[in-house]
Simulated assay, not measured.
Amino acid sequence: MIKDMEKQAAPAPLLSIKKLKTYYPIKRGILSKTVGYIKAVDGVDLEIYQGETLGLVGESGCGKSSMGRTIVRLENPTEGSIIFNNEDIAGYSNKRMTSIRTDLQIIFQDPYSSLNPKKRVYDILAEPLKVHKIVPEDKIPGQIDKLLDAVELPKNFKNRYPNQFSGGQRQRVGIARALALNPKLIVCDEPVSALDVSTQAQVLNLLKDLQKKLNLTYLFIAHGLGAVKYISDRIAVMYLGKIVEIASKDEIFKNPRHPYTKALLSAYPVPNPHMRNKERVILEGDVPSPANPPQGCRFHTRCKFARENVCDKDTPELKQVKGAEGEHLSACFFQDSF
């Protein structure tokens, strides 16, 4: 007998990366012999759903930007799959990636170095429109006006060069360039870290407004927890090439279940005078080299909860936290001990 009501299947993720690895060879000697690898991204599984913002946080050098660049195929993955829009693009050639570029874009950290200083804004925005033939040639001027209007820049700015803008205005041009191809997913690689605080807020508000209007999906990479908390729906925490915790932003901030996440949050300034004496977690020691990461749990060399013959031998898997409402994954053997 057919049921009157059936449980709806969970929507398929827009992006799904599985066992993704990005290694950079270490070369030495006159013959540039490969003597090892920097394991920037080392076996990451992650999913991003249509219309959401997934924040990716971690210390500098943890592999966040390498993962973002690999997802948009500015870097070639060493292993693993990148399933975007039901296509595994990990092994696509540059020629075959051309058709994917319209749906997959990136906003870079430094808006000045990412814009050609010898080109006017008009030429910077017109180039992707011409290459991918988004609109007819005679429609390009009007399309550029629409892009500038979308990022709240005057239309006459199209005749200026990048060095004639402030940092925030340049980043708006970078956002307009990413929007030019009508993408489905935008990787935001620390897009506000080079801006002052007031300008950061303006750019974050712009990104949120654009997401609502255009149904965009973001991977928002940052090391500043304030920006990530404001813009993200879910947050993934990365340490030394691996994801150690994933949950909704409320769960991450209220109930962190990985020692590294707790350390990051303890350093986050809270504008509440009654919380001046909150517990501080001081990380001891240096971040291990990604060329020679510790065996077992990557974090055990700096973790006060680590136990011998467990954390230094076996690698913990991302598992659902007991008692958590909704998805909350943590890669810690002793997540109930703190």
Rank of each mutant, 00 (worst) to 15 (best):
I134A: 10
Y92T: 01
P117K: 03
S114W: 02
N94W: 14
K118I: 11
K133Q: 13
I107S: 05
I100Q: 08
I83E: 05
D145R: 11
R73M: 09
V135F: 08
T102I: 12
I89H: 08
D123G: 06
K118D: 12
K139G: 08
E137Y: 14
S66R: 08
L125R: 06
H132L: 02
S66G: 09
D145I: 12
V135W: 10
I140S: 06
N86L: 10
G91H: 14
T78P: 00
R101L: 03
V135D: 07
N76K: 15
L104H: 03
V131F: 09
S81R: 13
I106Q: 07
S66N: 09
A126G: 00
T70S: 13
Y112G: 00
L115A: 08
G68T: 01
A126H: 06
V135M: 06
N86I: 10
T78A: 02
G142E: 13
Q143E: 14
R96D: 13
K95V: 09
I124C: 06
S99T: 15
I71P: 00
G80D: 03
S99V: 13
V121Q: 05
D138L: 13
S81C: 07
K95M: 08
I82D: 01
G80S: 02
D138K: 14
T78K: 06
E127P: 04
I124L: 13
I71S: 01
I89F: 06
K130W: 11
Y112H: 10
E87L: 14
N86E: 15
I140C: 00
S99F: 11
P77L: 07
T78W: 05
L115V: 02
D123T: 12
I107E: 05
R96V: 11
Y112I: 05
T102R: 15
I134F: 06
M97I: 09
Q143R: 15
K130L: 14
R120C: 05
D110G: 00
N76Q: 15
I124K: 08
D103S: 14
E127Y: 02
I89R: 08
G68Y: 00
P128D: 00
Q105R: 01
N76L: 15
Q109F: 04
K119F: 11
M67E: 02
E127V: 04
G91E: 12
P136D: 12
K133S: 11
M97T: 08
G68Q: 01
L129P: 00
S93A: 08
Q143L: 10
L74R: 11
K95C: 08
S113N: 08
D138A: 14
Q109A: 05
A90L: 10
L104S: 01
L104C: 05
P111Y: 04
D138C: 09
G80F: 01
E137D: 13
D138F: 12
D138R: 15
N116F: 09
I82W: 00
N94Y: 13
S93F: 05
L129Q: 04
P111R: 05
S93T: 11
F108I: 02
T70H: 07
R101T: 00
P77F: 04
V135E: 03
E127Q: 09
K133A: 12
L129D: 00
T98V: 14
L104W: 01
V135L: 10
L129K: 04
L74A: 06
K133H: 13
R120I: 03
S66H: 10
Q105E: 00
S93G: 06
P136A: 08
T78F: 05
M97D: 07
I83G: 06
N94G: 14
R96A: 13
E127N: 09
T102M: 15
Q109W: 03
N85G: 06
N94P: 14
E87Q: 15
